[in-house]
Design a protein around this nucleic acid. Structure first.
Length: 496
RNA sequence: GACCCGGUAGCUCAGCUGGUAGAGCAUCUGCCUUUUAAGCAGAGGGUCAUGAGUUCAAGUCUCAUCCGGGUCACCA
């Protein structure tokens, strides 16, 4: 708190003191409400007695009477308070209430001249004195920085924002229930990892004091979930937060929510169908349609979704790599202006070319399938194509929504892949997988044929709620701290 | 990390080629017992993100820094 309070803050603190001086607790403990705003609007009956509670969002005083709107989680309801009903002393307190205060109201329902269902205040109780003024009633809170930093205000004032997060909750719930109905078991695996693995990404590092050891925040739950399939859980999934130490953009936040699903005795074709089903079911239930609009663009989620191999997708954008040797592909990279990749592996170059020339152009739902072996260390070799794996990525509106494989189940092959990853790591690739001996041991016990998929929940929610940035579907997106806040002791210690 | 745009009252925004800061809402005072962007009359409220510089004079021009947004790069 700054020493110098602005006039507006001072006024509210003075009012708080007045309330206390009048012997009223401005922060009481409970309140018994009988109705919500939505219930009253829907089941309106003249003269019904109700008890409601909510935040004052508008206020119109008329001398000895006053209108206001209370907002609860379900919506707004008008209240009408008259001095001759509640008495002079109480009305004086009522008149001093501010927009933003939370009150409970008991009274009878009536309809005003203009036909609005309204509660006539017989009694009211202050439930929380608000000390900050709310944003303007007409324009609300627009400033993006403030909206993200003070999401609580954003939610109070912007109904559309509340809707987005309600939809997010429904989407998550629908996916969870779809999987439960199919016999999948929801599990939780460690978030603090000893090794870096399960995805190509840079982890956040942390430290366990008592054990005196470094730890990584997980970048994916993949390797633990496959251990569970080894253990005999044939259908498992985990929905949870993962952490990746990379840049921030409209589709990247350092922590995000992923759902990973593993099904024994299935391959990537099965998992592709499952992915289609989960997403279209959620879309139908939440939006009532598969024809959606995202950032002004029409996208059809109607099945079936296009499937095309990565090599063919490149060909569609004028990049021919079929039958080319590694050397020729390196030359192609240089010709395309990717000078840094003159000595990279063919697989790496193919991925970069794909990222650069193909992905952003894929607008309608598309499964890109059969990726190069070199960049897919956890995927099973393709059953018929040398040098490729059985893998797909789902792209919608230029965003990667899902990534999946026929999981690599051969422990000898997995060891080879880890060894190549170790070489890459030694050569400076800080996203390479760690050698995970326990995971290899699990595979040696035997992982049945398994299909696995990871779906980015935040991006899916963006798509289904037509939100242009991942920040708009995260309640508290990552923000740099403002300069005035001084670092905590812990931060000072770490930075020292 | 590079480039572009932005930061002015609690909120939403004006502020021209440099001349000393404005509106609406909100707040305060008075009037007002069916209003709803209530109304009428009056008042208060600003380190113009921060710090330097140019200038007689800077919200405005220059540089640096911070925060945010966007594009690209990085990135599954």
């Amino acid at each position: 708190m700054s020493e110098e309070l602005s006039e507006l803050l001072k006024v509210r603190r003075d009012k708080l003191a007045e309330i206390r001086a009048a012997g009223i607790n401005p922060f009481p403990y409970t309140y018994e409400k009988t109705h919500t705003a939505a219930e009253i609007s829907a089941e309106y009956k003249e003269n019904d007695e109700v008890s409601i509670a909510g935040r004052i969002m508008t206020k119109r005083g008329h001398g000895k009477a006053s209108f206001a709107h209370l907002q609860d989680e379900t919506g707004r309801i008008q209240i009408y308070c008259r001095q001759d009903i509640i008495g002079e002393a109480k009305y004086e307190i009522y008149a001093k209430l501010d927009i933003g205060d939370i009150i409970g109201v008991k009274g009878h329902i009536f309809k005003t001249k203009t036909g609005e269902t309204t509660v006539k205040v017989a009694d009211f109780t202050i439930l929380c004195k608000s000390l900050h003024p709310l944003p303007e009633k007409w324009h609300g809170l627009q400033d993006k920085e403030l909206r993200y930093r003070e999401r609580y205000v954003d939610l109070m004032v912007n109904a559309e924002v509340r809707e987005v997060f309600k939809k997010r909750s429904r989407i998550v719930s629908l996916i969870r229930h779809s999987l439960e109905n199919k016999g999948f078991l929801e599990v939780e695996t460690p978030i603090l990892h000893v090794l870096q693995g399960g995805a190509a990404a840079k982890p956040f590092e942390t430290y366990h004091e008592a054990l005196d050891m470094p730890l990584f925040m997980r970048i994916a739950p993949e390797l633990y979930l496959k251990r569970l399939v080894v253990g005999g859980f044939e259908k498992v999934f985990e929905m949870g937060r993962v952490f990746r130490n990379e840049g921030i953009s409209y589709k990247h936040n350092p922590e995000f929510t992923i759902i990973e699903i593993y099904q024994a005795y299935a391959d990537y074709n099965d998992v592709m169908r499952l992915t289609e089903e989960l997403i279209t079911t959620a879309a139908k239930e939440v939006l009532g349609t598969l024809e959606i609009e995202f950032k002004g663009e029409k996208i059809s989620l109607a099945l079936p979704w296009k499937r095309i191999t990565l090599v063919d997708a490149l060909k569609e954008y004028g990049i021919e790599i079929e039958g080319k040797s590694e050397k020729e592909i390196q030359e192609l990279a240089v010709a395309k202006g990717l000078k840094d990749y003159a000595k990279a592996s063919a697989g790496k170059i193919i991925n970069v070319l794909y990222d650069k020339y193909v992905e952003a152009n894929l607008r309608q739902p598309t499964f890109i399938i059969d990726h190069p072996l070199a960049t897919s260390p956890l995927a099973k070799k393709h059953r018929s194509k040398e040098g490729y794996v059985e893998r797909f990525e789902l792209i919608i509106a230029g965003m990667e929504l899902a990534n999946a494989f026929s999981e690599l189940t051969d422990p000898i092959d997995q060891l080879d892949r880890f060894e190549s990853q170790a070489e890459a790591k030694a050569a400076g690739d800080d996203e390479a997988e760690s050698m995970d001996e326990d995971f290899l041991r699990a595979l040696e016990y035997g992982l049945p044929p398994t299909g696995g998929v990871g779906i980015g929940i935040d991006r899916l929610v963006m798509l289904l709620t037509n939100q242009p940035s991942i920040r708009d579907v995260l309640l508290f997106p990552h923000m740099k701290p403002l300069p005035r806040s001084k670092p905590s002791e812990a931060e000072t210690e770490i930075l020292a």
